[in-house]
């Protein structure tokens, strides 16, 4: 890994100020960023890495003002074992328990999991080999390349640094994203509170809408009503040390309303609204579950290499519904 300077931030203010300087990057657990730095995938290498883990008070779990509040520095391992989380939002604990591998879970933060960069193998190739759209380059190599793990719902489209329209097929595979989306969480930052549905963004070199110097401090989950049912499902090729190729969360509210969120299938975590509508207020039957699975992939535009994800989504949605 090439050299950089390092700051153990003592406060959010110190971290924010440092991160506003060009050439600085924020690091929490480091699982994502260190690999990216070792592989030297960025156009510009950071001058300064700001360690956020030394900021006190960001690793708590508490119930406050009708929210389950999870500190951004909560480690996924701790979340998975936390009794409050287990009882109020069991699907969050489930997702945290299945991320990556045991040692990584102990050192992966909630904030870091949500803010990670895409795993696209063109984006991540050693030495910034592919000057891809996501990095400001002209094209997304996944379109004509090997896109078996890429989006089945079309690309993210955004304005590049050069003002031209860009498209990127990378997906968001954050373990916790679908469940937090299904629970309609809010992301609290040093500057504002953002509904999670608006948090993910695919601008150049960003996977979130965070501005320079803006830091996630907390994730707030509205306390689920009594009687709410929820579950989390993931599908990976390997049973450990693997990102989900598809993951999803289902939340059934006592009033018969549903929230279904999918990860790994699109540039951002995605609500399966057609499936939610189909299910609303109806009694679950195997036929309805099957139909909901189909509805969940409505509008998909898969490639030959990644159409299998639709089959996975259909099956996982159906089975998750029937397990509730």
């Amino acid at each position: 890994m090439r050299p950089f300077n390092h700051l153990n931030a003592a406060s959010l203010e110190e971290a924010s100020a440092a991160l506003k300087q060009p050439g600085s990057l924020a690091m929490a657990g480091g699982g994502d960023l260190l690999g990216a730095l070792k592989d030297d995938i960025f156009e510009t290498y950071p001058k300064l890495v700001v360690n956020l883990k030394t900021i006190p008070g960001l690793d708590g779990v508490e119930v406050k003002d009708g929210f389950l509040c999870l500190g951004a520095l909560c480690m996924l391992g701790d979340l998975s074992r936390n009794e409050t989380v287990q009882s109020l939002a069991p699907a969050v604990a489930e997702a945290a328990a299945k991320c990556a591998s045991p040692a990584l879970r102990e050192n992966t933060t909630l904030g870091g999991n949500l803010c990670q960069l895409p795993r696209c193998w063109y984006f991540r190739k050693l030495g910034n080999h592919f000057d891809c759209a996501r990095k400001g380059g002209g094209k997304c190599f996944a379109f004509n390349g090997d896109n078996r793990y890429h989006s089945v719902f079309g690309p993210a489209v955004f304005n590049g640094c050069d003002g031209a329209k860009k498209a990127c097929l990378a997906v968001n595979q954050a373990e916790l994203a679908p469940v937090l989306l299904a629970l309609e969480a809010q992301i609290v930052t040093t500057a504002r509170t953002i509904p999670i549905g608006e948090f993910f963004d695919c601008g150049v070199l960003r996977s979130t809408v965070l501005e320079p110097g803006e830091i996630v401090t907390e994730v707030r989950i509205p306390l689920p009503e009594k009687g709410t049912k929820m579950t989390y499902r993931r599908f990976s090729f390997r049973k450990s040390i693997d990102f989900p190729v598809v993951n999803l969360a289902l939340v059934q509210k006592p009033g018969g309303e549903w929230r279904i969120a999918l990860g790994g299938v699109a540039p951002t975590p995605r609500r399966a609204e057609a499936a939610e509508t189909l299910l609303a207020g109806k009694a679950l039957t195997p036929e309805l579950a099957e139909a909901a699975g189909k509805a969940a992939v409505q509008g998909a535009k898969p490639t030959e290499a990644n159409a299998y994800k639709l089959q996975l989504v259909k099956t996982l949605v159906k089975r998750a519904l029937l397990s509730l």
């Binding site: 063109y122 080999h129 190599f141 090997d146 049973k239 450990s240 040390i241």
Partner: peptide, 20 residues
Amino acid sequence: HDPETGVRLNSNFLDYRVPT
């Protein structure tokens, strides 16, 4: 391998999956 450039896309222990 990337079909266009022939570059290898998964020379690491995450994307090249050895059983656990």
